[in-house]
Simulated scan of single mutants.
Amino acid sequence: MTNEQWGLRVPAKKGEEVRQALLRDGALDLTFKVLHDGEFLVFPVQEAREGTSRYVFEDQPGRISLPRHELVGGIAIMQDNDPKGAEAILASRPSLHTVLFPQSEVSGKYRTRDYMVLAGNDTTLTEVNEYGHRYKIDLANAYFSSRLSTERQRIAEKTRNNENVLDMFTGVGPFAITLAPHAAFIVAVDLNPKAVLMLIENIRKNKATNILPLLADACRLRSTLPWKFDRIIMNLPLAGTDFLTDAFRLIRHGGMIHFYSLVSREGEHIDRIYELGATEVTERIVRSYSPGQWHAVYDIEV
Rank of each mutant, 00 (worst) to 15 (best):
H133P: 01
K136I: 08
Q153A: 04
E163H: 14
Y131Q: 10
S146Q: 09
T150F: 03
E157A: 15
T159I: 14
R154M: 07
N164E: 09
E151F: 01
G171L: 08
R147C: 06
F144Y: 06
A142C: 08
E151Y: 09
K158T: 13
E163R: 11
R134L: 00
D167G: 11
N141W: 07
L148N: 03
Q153Y: 02
L148E: 03
A142E: 06
I137N: 00
F169K: 10
T159K: 04
D138Q: 09
T170D: 01
G132S: 12
I137Y: 00
T159W: 02
V172H: 05
T150V: 05
Q153I: 13
Y131W: 11
R147I: 05
N129C: 09
R154A: 07
T170R: 04
E157N: 10
I155P: 01
E151P: 05
G132E: 06
L166Q: 09
M168W: 10
T150Q: 07
H133I: 12
V172R: 00
V165C: 06
S146W: 06
V172E: 00
Y131S: 14
K158E: 13
N141I: 07
V165M: 02
K158I: 12
I137R: 00
I155Y: 01
A156R: 03
Y135R: 05
E130T: 10
R154W: 10
N129L: 14
R160Y: 08
D138R: 11
Y131V: 14
N161K: 14
N141F: 09
R154D: 08
L166R: 11
F144E: 00
A140T: 14
L166C: 10
Y143V: 05
S146M: 07
N141S: 14
F169C: 08
Y143P: 03
N141L: 13
E157R: 15
Y135Q: 02
L148R: 00
N129T: 15
Q153L: 05
